[in-house]
Lab assay of single mutants.
Amino acid sequence: TTTLTYTDEEEARKAAEELKRRGITFTYTKRGGTWEIRIK
């Protein structure tokens, strides 16, 4: 499992869109002031 952490929502959203485009499965979690993208 790879976890990407972002403090900028815009960056996190761009990363999530890129992963979706590649067909990669991930979970997206907001934790306080950070956003976590966990790639399975």
Rank of each mutant, 00 (worst) to 15 (best):
R22H: 08
L19T: 01
G33S: 12
T5V: 14
D8T: 12
G23F: 03
A12H: 01
R21D: 06
Y28F: 15
T34V: 15
A16L: 09
T5S: 08
E10G: 13
K20V: 11
G33A: 13
F26L: 02
T29G: 06
Y6E: 00
F26K: 00
E17H: 10
G32M: 05
Y6T: 01
E9M: 05
L19P: 00
L4Q: 05
T25G: 07
L19I: 02
L4T: 04
F26M: 02
Y28D: 02
T5W: 12
E36G: 01
K40M: 15
G23T: 02
R38V: 15
I24F: 07
R38P: 00
G33P: 11
D8W: 03
E10D: 12
Y6H: 01
T29R: 08
L4V: 06
I24V: 09
T34M: 15
T5F: 14
R13Y: 07
T3A: 04
W35S: 01
D8N: 14
K14E: 09
F26V: 02
R21S: 09
R21F: 06
G23Q: 03
F26E: 00
E18W: 14
T5M: 10
W35L: 03
T27H: 07
R38S: 13
I37L: 04
L4H: 06
E11A: 11
R38I: 15
K30P: 06
R13V: 09
Y28C: 14
L19W: 02
R31M: 13
K20G: 06
K20W: 11
I37D: 00
E18K: 06
R22D: 04
K30H: 10
T7N: 09
G32D: 14
T7A: 08
T5L: 13
Y28S: 05
T5R: 12
W35M: 03
E11P: 03
T1H: 12
A12M: 07
T1Q: 11
R22P: 01
T27G: 03
K14S: 10
Y6K: 00
I39F: 10
Y6A: 01
Y28M: 15
D8S: 14
T27Y: 07
A12P: 00
R31C: 13
R22S: 05
K20D: 07
R38H: 12
E11K: 08
R31N: 14
T25C: 12
K14Y: 06
W35C: 04
